[in-house]
Nucleic acid binder design. Structure first.
Lengths: 183, 183
DNA sequence: TATCAGGTGATAATGATTATCATCCGTATG
DNA sequence: CATACGGATGATAATCATTATCACCTGATA
């Protein structure tokens, strides 16, 4: 199997296509099309850093200053519910959302919390057959690779830290041992 | 590849062995051996349901009523840091911990949040070669299978709900679509 | 246009986790 | 064994993401 980092450049056209059909998808799901929803999906599709609700809210407010953070939270959950977004529940931080619906996985820097999309060719096919565990009906699956990004590795972990992740260094420590292994 | 549910019966001897060497492992990590730590690792190893901090605290308090919930939180993080436990950050609930260090994965019921250990023979080997993403130094990885457990599927989702997971039904809805796919 | 179900904004509430700090205790040393 | 030190602990407050509440608004439909 081969791992490939997904390039951001691919996403512009993808986002445009998704936006073009989003209103129809809402209607298909029986949901009213509101300007807030349009703005929120646009912000999500425009981001490539798996933003949290607060970041999306900030982006949305550039054009719609009145939008409530609660609405952003609610709408992101709604988007997940109808399959227009995915929640990335990484390292027990605040929730991060991903508008990219293509099959892919995530590499997460345990220090700066940067998330990078990766594709692992062949993995979907290889796992497809084992998704039926006895006693469970499988709905989906996700692979998360914990890692130290080059910036953090070389600069002692200070690079790329978001101002929000105050406790990142301490939290990152819990992944310092056990180089390989699954949770 | 073949998926196999890990049986609880295996854990009794495993827990005993882990307890036997735990004090030494603390000393090796430069940590004092305290009764609280002993009680907390014992509670974690004695549980097979990936308990949250609060549940472990309740169990510990049966013998040590004075133990603080904050200590349980701190200690569990410490255990993760020295590689004696793992945090299962599933579906953005409160943190769940796992004392089983054997390579394995998790099937999570999106409704009742029950977590089940599974082994996927061959997956470790198959993925071993791709754990080097450009720009990242891989530390480990985890595979989580979202699923609906048979109890929830047959009883309309009421079975097995913990009293704590009040919002589980609503949250579970976000996984109702997109039967297969990775995050 | 009239109606209504659902959406939204503002705000309070919730709940897990973390910070703080005075005190305690495991460990190493004499 | 006595002492000293540094980390651990308990109690409690603070933080912060998320959710609940509720009055009001608005997109969808007839």
């Amino acid at each position: 199997m081969k791992l490939k980092v997904v390039k951001d450049s691919r996403r512009a056209g993808y986002a445009r296509a998704r936006m073009a059909e989003f209103a129809d998808r809402c209607r298909a799901a029986g949901l009213p099309v509101t300007p807030q929803r349009m703005a929120i999906i646009a912000a999500l599709l425009g981001a490539n850093d798996h933003p949290r609700a607060e970041a999306i809210c900030a982006e949305v407010r550039r054009r719609h200053p009145h939008v409530s953070l609660a609405t952003v939270h609610r709408t992101l959950e709604t988007l997940c519910r109808i399959g227009e977004a995915r929640k990335v529940t990484t390292l027990h931080d605040s929730a991060r959302y991903d508008g990219n619906l293509e099959p892919h996985h995530h590499v997460v820097c345990v220090r700066c919390r940067r998330i990078c999309d990766v594709e692992i060719a062949g993995l979907e096919d290889a796992l497809g057959g084992v998704l039926t565990a006895p006693g469970f009906r499988a709905l989906g699956w996700s692979l998360e690779i914990r890692a130290l990004c080059d910036d953090c590795a070389s600069s002692g972990g200070r690079a790329g830290r978001s101002p929000k992740s105050r406790g990142a260094d301490r939290r990152a420590a819990q992944f310092a041992t056990k180089p390989t292994g699954s949770d």
